[in-house]
Amino acid sequence: MADCSTSMDFSGALQRLGEDDPSAAVAKAKEQLNILDNVSLNIAVTGETGAGKSAFINAFRGLDDDEDMSAPTGITETTNEVTMYTHPTMPNVKLWDLPGIGMPNLKADQYLKKVKFETYDLFIIISSTRFKENDVFLAMEMKKKHKHFYFVRSKIDNDIHSESRSKTFDEQQLLCTIREDCLRNLKEVGDPEVFLISSYDLGKYDFQNLVDTIELELSEQKQFALVQSLPVCSLAMLKKQKRRMEKFIMLFAIASGCGGFFSIPFLSLAFDKTVLVAFYTSCHHAFGLDEKSIEKLSERVNKPVQHLKLPIKSPLTLALMDKSKLVPPIGPTCPVTSLENLLDVKHFVKRFQNATQAFNHTYSVLSQGLNDMVNDMTEVLRVAGLD
């Protein structure tokens, strides 16, 4: 992957923030980071009974169906009331499991009021067969109210497995047939896109396309929340995570590299270490280098955790793994330095005469750290066979 640019200058950063005064720019950068940290994203998952809503919610949150925080799944309707599930590492991202609209005690014309329709930023309408009258009804109502909605045809892995026994089986042809069948039942909605998904393997089929489509229709702050909350299930998703983090390096560099400079000039301690740690920790989780993500990847590809950790080489990734209690590979070529000591070496031993020097150095170090983690995760995906 190409390195992200380290040539952003301080005056250009001030210009992008719309501030001439460096002190005001620092305050604005911290304010924007605070907004990013607190922005909420509410995703409603709806559809007929048994469509696989709960399985999708679990997969989106990077959880298995049998984990403590997972939404209950089953062959019968498991959601009788609106149920909210927070994301394990992004608590401001909430997925709402809505009752199946096909339940006998919940008719279509009562549905929107019961589920508090206006609460959500977007809707995922899921079907495990073809989309039916109730699905079309929901989409038409959402269209009237200018709400974003997306049709997801779930359980594609079941269809593939069922049809694969046929001598004339052609996977691409089957996917095309399923998509066309769904679209025939959605003519009233206009010209919607249907995303084919397996909740048990998000790296296949249309999940990446679904994410790309949703992202385009959200504000920048909500885009950040969306992408940060997604499991890294492919190299394409890792690249998306990287591009999203690159957009915000400038804010972290101003907030950290210049945050204390104006009150403590000429001192190397004019860095806000908590901002640096927040950026690196955020990347660490987003890229799937944390303990739980590595373990889940190990289970998914049926390879030992230790094999997936072996290609991890950068001191920063190793320090973050150590901090998060994911024991890194230890050997003569992989010494582990604590995150605090690593930041001291990279930042606090330096002295700068002005905010421009502090910004440039911090921007460069953050960019390099980002690239180091991306390169490590790229190697992990390669070992996992997902490159």
Rank of each mutant, 00 (worst) to 15 (best):
S166D: 09
K187N: 12
K94V: 01
M1G: 07
E171Q: 15
G288N: 14
S234F: 07
A13M: 15
D191F: 07
T46I: 04
D97Y: 10
V232Y: 10
R243L: 13
R16D: 01
S367P: 06
E81S: 15
D170C: 09
S54A: 03
S234I: 09
T177P: 04
I294V: 06
M1V: 07
S256W: 00
Q228M: 07
D109R: 06
L339T: 00
V345E: 01
L342G: 02
I312V: 02
V345Q: 01
S23F: 02
K30E: 11
K53Y: 14
V305E: 10
K239G: 05
L33C: 12
L366A: 05
A225L: 15
P88G: 12
V277F: 03
L216K: 08
V301Y: 08
I57W: 06
E81T: 13
P335T: 07
G259A: 03
M69K: 06
T177W: 04
F149V: 13
S364V: 09
V93G: 07
D212T: 09
N80Y: 14
Q357L: 01
N80R: 12
V227S: 03
E340Y: 13
R61S: 06
K303P: 06
K155V: 08
S70E: 01
S199W: 11
F137E: 06
R300L: 06
L289Y: 09
K292T: 11
N42A: 15
S282R: 15
A44C: 09
V82H: 13
N375I: 14
G47K: 07
A358P: 01
C182P: 11
N354S: 05
K242A: 02
H146F: 08
H307V: 11
D322L: 11
L138T: 10
Y120V: 08
V136L: 04
S199V: 11
L308W: 09
L63S: 05
K30V: 04
I75V: 05
E295D: 05
L276T: 01
F348G: 00
N134I: 07
F271S: 06
S7P: 05
V305H: 01
K292G: 02
I101K: 08
V383W: 02
F151K: 03
